[in-house]
Design a protein around this nucleic acid. Sequence first.
DNA 1: TTGACCGGAAACCGATCGGTCTCCATTATT
DNA 2: AATAATGGAGACCGATCGGTTTCCGGTCAA
Lengths: 211, 211
Amino acid sequence: MTVPTATPPTASARDRLIDTAIALFNRHGFHATGVDRIVAVAKVAKKTLYAHFPSKEDLILAALSRKRAAFADKFLPVVLAGSEDPRQRLLSLFELAKSWFADPDFYGCIFINAAVEYSEPAHPINACAREFKTLLRNFARDQAAAGGAADPDALADQIALLFEGATTVAQVSGRPDAATTAKDIAARLIDQAFRRQQTNGADTAILSSCE
Amino acid sequence: MTVPTATPPTASARDRLIDTAIALFNRHGFHATGVDRIVAVAKVAKKTLYAHFPSKEDLILAALSRKRAAFADKFLPVVLAGSEDPRQRLLSLFELAKSWFADPDFYGCIFINAAVEYSEPAHPINACAREFKTLLRNFARDQAAAGGAADPDALADQIALLFEGATTVAQVSGRPDAATTAKDIAARLIDQAFRRQQTNGADTAILSSCE
DNA sequence: TTGACCGGAAACCGATCGGTCTCCATTATT
DNA sequence: AATAATGGAGACCGATCGGTTTCCGGTCAA
């Protein structure tokens, strides 16, 4: 007799469902994307979808969870490996955002979009989106602290606000150059926040670090 | 014989429909708000709705149009009447945003939300949202020019980005204090942009104008 | 070869979607 | 008092929603 597998059927169908769902949710939104369309594009039987996910809401949460994992396990490590300098690390966020916004398949941040469509704070999807935003902010705070900012939390709030602003402007107004606008502002704020800690140091470092 | 009125039936039903639609769209979103719910809350017959608006999409456009009119005809004049100083006028945007975000009925900017749910640039609703965003930016540019900024367009882009960022952070992360964060950044950027034009003037003015 | 099991295709469910239509009470005009 | 126009309540339409179920072909072990 076969051992009853704890994980449902095959895993590739599940992966295909999540990937398809992410793409469709990004482009058309959550309410506007029906499960019929998802299974049709993913070439998966409806029964299989409900074998993996109890409901559409669980599929949405799984899609957001995968996006969050990709951000934490792939995106942030790349940023960390790119430079040792906290200032450069923070600025590279906006540099990467520039190419993100320019992608023809850019339809905004899926977490912002999720929070817009599920705006009740108590809703699991809204909570998931809100929780994700703390990831970026915590990263900014860590880098701000590493750079010696007097108030790392304040700088993190500023960086996060600039990032959200750039994303929203790029999406709503169709202006990918918002990434550059935000980066310029961020550079000034970082310099001001870091300068205070190194008043004894050379001011030339601030100029030379401008790319 | 009665004169055939150019405007359909009574106007109060139309007003109630638009006001109800704005409230429901703001709280629950566009796709999630059905016309049945709108007519039920507005206490209007479905037939009356379709006597005033050819389709739900037209009702959405009418709602957005009313919001835009309120912004241009009520909100901006108040800002203009509040002060003669371009700097204060720009900062008052964020001051007003603070109380906006603190409103328990705050569910984000309805134009951002509309652009999120109707993300195709060619869609009339998306175009309407995108067009609105130029109103705020043009206002900022006019004030930047009046204040003597070297590059009014650049400052306007910065102000607009900060405003969008504050709105998004307040909505997604539930942090009304984002208005203050954005205002502080805006104050610095305005000071820097305006200072260049008055290098011969007293630097004390920069300090004294900080509130 | 047989039989248990799996997943895909698709019918099916009640509910709701946007939109149309019928009926009737109210109202204003003649 | 009779008539015509209005707007409200709500039935009704086909389509689609999220979700369940049936059926059937293929796959694997016994």
